[in-house]
């Protein structure tokens, strides 16, 4: 199965990964080869076979819906890991470009 350059662009967009033109060609051919291999599953008759999503047989692992918080020292390290922040808040770029003309 051949993955087209258009499909690669679509996947990269869905995965939020910018690709160069060279990478698009390379990933396209590599993904095509991998999909060619995994297509061997089509030889299997799986009609009526239940899907396995986990193997331990655990069912409905519940816990109380309450906030546990974390210890202050761990919290401090978490905040220090923010690439950019304002006091204890994560600072990020806007979702939309907000220029005066757009208002």
């Amino acid at each position: 199965m051949k993955i087209t350059e258009q499909q690669i662009e679509h996947l990269a967009d869905l995965a939020r990964i910018e690709l160069t033109d060279v990478e698009k060609v390379k990933f396209g051919s590599q993904l095509s080869a991998i999909l060619g291999y995994v297509n061997k599953l089509n030889q299997l008759d799986t009609e009526g076979v239940p899907a396995t999503s986990q193997v331990t047989g655990l069912l409905n692992v519940w816990r109380e819906d309450h906030i546990e918080g974390c210890e202050p020292a761990a919290r401090e390290l978490i905040v220090e890991n923010f690439p950019d922040r304002q006091e204890n808040l994560v600072k990020v770029k806007g979702v939309f470009k907000a220029t005066p003309e757009e208002f």
């Binding site: 990964i17 599953l41 799986t46």
Partner: peptide
Amino acid sequence: VRRRIMLGTHVLSTGYYDAYYKKAQQARTL
């Protein structure tokens, strides 16, 4: 890492989910 993320995105995307992801989950049972 990028290759596997894109491969995973593909097998989960509309139109391919049943052919890849679900099929693999069933084969996993076998």
